[in-house]
């Protein structure tokens, strides 16, 4: 069993950051394949402030999704710290918190939106989105209103709202998913290719929705498979390569730096 040792946060963390990753390491030991070790992250440092949208860039296999999943604790960090500042102002190390505490944080303060909707069975589209709001403390009526607005925004036609979310198409599910994930924005939102399956029009609507999060003070850490989305949304780009941070800076500077290994998809 993995023992997680709590330790005190270092004094030099940026005062305003919601997320401060320090020395994050991750590798995978594949016991079913003769104990082969696959290395993923080799000591990543990263900060995200409220209202900031940090996009991760880099080639496939650079560790972008791995980093997101470590922050969400879907992957267990192999070393280093993931400092998260809670709404109550406490700095906690997500890499070392008990499972139950992480589960509570996920419910209230850290959101994760992937391209896959894990919808409750037999629950209508509107309820799926609204209950994401009530789960984060919105009043029932306000949540339904916000859900309706979010669904309109991402182009889910009203006649679909009463249907079970599980019967929707892949693209529709993805949009419901992003609507649910953003209706009551958490302090930290992790976006893992949330627009990958969308046609241009819907993609644009969803990107607009994400762009608005900036105003709510939500800190966003994202992975997009196209540089266009990054350019449009990110306030800062962090380039990963070989499990390390290669560069960090404003998108207009980073995305034009031809020396950096970026996924080419424009």
């Amino acid at each position: 069993m993995t023992t997680l040792q709590p330790s005190a946060p270092p004094a030099d963390l940026p005062a305003g950051s919601v997320l401060s990753v320090r020395g994050l390491r991750k590798d995978f030991t594949l016991h079913t394949i003769d104990g082969r070790v696959v290395e993923a992250l080799h000591g990543v440092d990263l900060d995200v402030a409220p209202g900031e949208h940090v996009a991760l860039a880099g080639t496939s296999g650079a560790g972008k999704s791995t980093l997101l999943r470590c922050v969400y604790r879907t992957y267990l960090a192999g070393g280093g710290h993931i400092w998260f500042r809670t709404a109550a102002g406490d700095l906690v190390d997500v890499a070392a918190l008990p499972d139950a505490t992480v589960a509570d944080l996920r419910g209230h303060e850290i959101g994760y939106v992937s391209q896959f909707l894990k919808a409750q069975p037999r629950r209508s589209v509107l309820t799926t989105v609204a209950s994401a709001g009530t789960a984060r403390g919105m009043a029932r009526d306000a949540a339904r209103e916000a859900a309706a607005a979010a669904l309109r925004q991402v182009g889910i036609a009203e006649h679909l709202w009463d249907m079970h979310a599980t019967v929707l198409s892949g693209g529709q599910k993805q949009r419901v998913n992003i609507a649910a994930g953003t209706i009551a924005p958490p302090r930290l939102l992790l976006l893992d290719e949330p627009v990958s399956a969308l046609d241009p029009a819907n993609r644009s609507a969803v990107l607009d929705l994400i762009a608005r999060l900036e105003r709510t003070g939500t800190a966003v850490l994202s992975v997009f498979h196209d540089l266009d989305a990054i350019e449009r949304l990110a306030t800062r780009v962090v380039v990963l390569g070989g499990g390390r941070v290669l560069a960090s800076g404003p998108p207009e500077q980073i995305l034009r730096d031809s020396s950096l290994p970026l996924e080419v998809a424009r």
Partner: peptide, 25 residues
């Protein structure tokens, strides 16, 4: 014996113990 415990998605995505990996596989 309990060989591993964790969040359910973590156990599925990143199982640590050889037996857990075998189960997930």
């Amino acid at each position: 014996r309990v060989v591993e415990s964790g969040l359910t998605d973590q156990l599925l995505e990143d199982p640590q113990h050889p037996y857990s990996q075998q189960l997930v596989a």
